[in-house]
């Protein structure tokens, strides 16, 4: 699969992983999307997307420490890889370039 191709939802999740840093796991991302984008998303789709991003090499994951909460289950913490950062930057730049070509409207 061409890793340059990224869906909107994938891009949003990837950005959230970048924002959350050390704290990026399933639920945190759901909450962050709710807070930042006022959009409620489904936990299972977040998980699926994270695994897909991992397949594409844009994020990597490792298990976090043990807690007493969560029924004793560890978190899977996701961190963005260099490739992920580069892709986000690429997307942003190409978008800005395109935006410059749009005739500016008077507000």
């Amino acid at each position: 699969m061409n890793s340059d191709q990224l869906g909107l939802f994938e891009e949003q999740i990837l950005t959230m992983v970048a924002i959350l840093g050390e704290d990026a796991y399933g639920n945190a991302i759901v909450d962050e999307i709710k807070n930042q984008l006022q959009k409620s998303v489904n936990l299972s789709s977040v998980h699926v997307t994270l695994y897909r991003l991992e397949d594409k090499g844009l994020v990597r994951s490792e298990m976090g420490g043990v807690t007493s909460k969560r029924g004793g289950r560890r978190k899977r913490i996701f961190t963005i890889t260099n490739a992920g950062i580069a892709l986000l930057r690429n997307l942003k730049e190409s978008r800005e370039q395109l935006w410059k070509l749009v005739p500016q409207f008077k507000m």
Binding site: Y25, G26, N27, L43, H47, Y51, M63, K69, R70, G71, R73, R74, K75, R76
Partner: peptide
């Protein structure tokens, strides 16, 4: 492989 973290997230929501 994925089960522990998914279970954890679900249980957290449940709590």
């Amino acid at each position: 492989k994925l089960r522990e973290s998914i279970e954890g997230d679900l249980l957290e929501n449940f709590e």
